[in-house]
């Protein structure tokens, strides 16, 4: 399986993602934001970080960079595109996913482990995942998912919510909503389910000595689904 991780100026989770993808068997290539063409890929990842210093709005400048034309075409042709954290912000700014990520509700940068409940397993990202609740890490200032009433209806109707913030047992309520996201949304798909954006970082949970292993479960399952 071939994957590509795009590095934007200000990306800082790109190498972590490279390590994670390689650990679980992907042949990964790093792709520079100013390149025009994507290498042959089964998966394209937009990593976390602070692309273009978060100027204007998070992800807005990166969503217009040169490589994004190829990423858009790749996604429109059904290619798998996954955006983590800042990558999620880039995907909404690029119009590949609905909505936007606002400043966290309590105006603080949040950096901690959280639990997410997988909402939809009928897609190549979560199909056959052996757990329904994952412990992952979040680190963001703008993770407060927001969209219009029409958009949230469409998201519900098409079962586009990928992940909800929850507690350890999968309860979804305001208490375990870290940032004020509508309906505790932590990650969403496009209608076709080939594009996934999520705020939590699975690439930070792949080493039992340093963190948990729920990221490992995710990546192992992902490469098996893509084969």
């Amino acid at each position: 399986m071939n994957s590509s991780v795009i590095t934007f100026p200000g990306s800082n989770c790109d190498r972590d993602m490279d390590i994670a993808l390689k650990k679980f068997g992907f042949k990964n290539k790093m792709v520079w934001h100013d390149d025009l063409e994507l290498p042959k890929s089964d998966l394209v990842v937009l990593p976390g970080g602070f692309s273009y210093g978060d100027y204007l709005r998070c992800g807005s400048m990166a969503s217009k960079s040169r490589i994004m034309k190829s990423v858009l075409n790749f996604a429109k042709g059904g290619g798998k595109v996954m955006g983590i954290c800042n990558g999620f912000q880039i995907l909404v700014e690029a119009g590949l996913l609905p909505g936007v990520l606002l400043r966290n509700k309590y105006l603080e940068f949040i950096c901690k482990n959280i639990f997410v409940k997988v909402n939809n397993k009928n897609n190549s990202y979560f199909k056959d995942l052996k757990k329904n609740i994952l412990e992952l890490h979040i680190a963001h200032n703008e993770g407060n998912y927001f969209c219009s009433k029409e958009q949230i209806k469409e998201i519900d109707d098409n079962n586009q919510v990928a992940l909800f913030y929850s507690d350890e047992s999968g309860n979804i309520n305001e208490e375990n909503n870290p940032n004020g996201s509508i309906k505790n949304i932590a990650g969403i798909f496009n209608k076709e389910k080939n594009v996934l954006g999520m705020m939590p970082h699975p690439e930070r949970m792949i080493d039992p000595a340093l963190s948990g292993e729920d990221g490992s479960i995710f990546f192992e399952n992902l490469i098996n689904n893509l084969k």
């Binding site: 709005r57 400048m61 217009k64 909404v92 909505g99 927001f146």
Partner: peptide, 9 residues
């Protein structure tokens, strides 16, 4: 429309 404003918000 293309960049300066995000019309969702």
């Amino acid at each position: 429309k293309k960049l300066l404003a995000n019309l969702v918000i």
